[in-house]
Amino acid sequence: MNINKKRLGIVGVVSIIFVLLISVFIFTFTQMGPYDKNNKEGIVVEIPQGSTTNTISDILYKNKLIKNKVVFKLSVKLSNKAQQFKAGKYLFNQTYSNKEIINDMSLGKVYNDGIKVTIPEGSTSREIVSILVDKKLGNEDNYEELISNPKEFYNDFKFLKEDDITSLEGFLYPSTYYIDENASEKEVLSTMLSKFNKIYTDELRDRQKELKMTTEQVINLASIVEKEAILDVDRPKIASVFYNRLKIGMPLQSDATIQYIFNERKQIVTYDDLKIDSPYNSYKNKGLPPTPISSPGIESIKATLYPEKTDYLYFVAKMDGGNNYSTNYEDHLKYVKEYKDERDRLNKSKNN
């Protein structure tokens, strides 16, 4: 009898523990689910840079997006995605489960509000200002004044303090932005400078130091590479040509720097244009121009920091978008003739 009672007691205790475990499981499972599966009204939350799981759970709980902070933190731990969380604004609603919220934050599915502005690679500051003004994001004169006065941004962007940076030209990184309609001109430009500062990583800065170059020199040369190249594969080769010319004191002779002189891009650079008296005329002046001539993308920046090792001094376009390269002027003239003959042949066939 005593043995049976003990057995019954053990069975009873096990049953209670089992029921408790099931209850805990059901409770936890339900707490991981949507706050309100019928409410699809959007809720925008902002996760600050460097937020801990505790901070994130507080924000989500305050906005009624999670039912239980402890359970949410458990969900994060089980997902092993805490290190992947990205700061920014997120658009959620109360139908989101813990898992869906965690996935969105780990993938960085940030909510982009504001006016969408796309700055193409190779844009000049004039073109950037035109895009912004067309979007009704500020005044042209205010932008031009700020762009010519980097000191206005010294507090937030220390790299601008380098002695040879006299303009923001080249440092307004080309990308797609979502800008608040009430943002000031300085705030808009700061957004682009922040993007550049993020893209221009410590690894790239270390490489710059290895080359014994300033940031301005890198971006200046990269801006020319950006305007001269069509295919990414050509960028490191084009950079090598310009490095080789600089090394021997040869003018860069880039049509892109000539184009920068004009308010609007010309269809073709003429021989008379090459005679223009301007510090941006790289046919008449040796070395780099006074400032960058465009905002280069990351591929042109990398190509400038990691150029191919070549002996090339010349390059000329091919009809397929690439280039022919040569080490001497005689071969260069042959490639120029090939290009002109091919261009004329194609134009003739189109007209027939």
Rank of each mutant, 00 (worst) to 15 (best):
K62I: 08
I224E: 00
K67A: 06
S326D: 04
L346H: 07
R265K: 15
I301T: 04
V71C: 06
K6T: 11
K6I: 14
K109E: 12
E41P: 00
L168A: 01
V117M: 08
T327H: 06
Y154A: 04
L288Y: 02
K73V: 07
L132M: 07
K286Y: 11
Q31G: 00
L8A: 14
H332S: 05
I115N: 05
Y283G: 04
F159E: 00
E216G: 00
T55I: 13
D341M: 10
G33W: 04
K151V: 11
K318D: 07
P236R: 08
S194Y: 02
L21Y: 10
N142A: 15
D344L: 13
F153R: 05
E145T: 08
G33K: 10
D113N: 15
K135T: 01
L160V: 06
Y325C: 01
R343A: 14
R126P: 02
K198I: 10
S106Q: 02
D164L: 04
V133A: 06
L65M: 00
T28I: 15
R265N: 12
D164R: 05
E140M: 06
S148Y: 02
I298Q: 06
G42T: 11
D36I: 01
V218E: 10
I101P: 01
S123C: 06
V11F: 15
T95D: 02
S326A: 13
S190P: 07
N38T: 13
E210S: 12
L21C: 13
A303F: 00
S75T: 10
A317E: 10
N197E: 15
N263S: 15
L78M: 14
S349A: 15
I199Q: 13
I248F: 08
T124R: 15
E187P: 00
E181V: 05
Y271T: 13
N328V: 07
K212S: 14
D272F: 02
I26N: 10
V44N: 06
Y35I: 05
T215F: 02
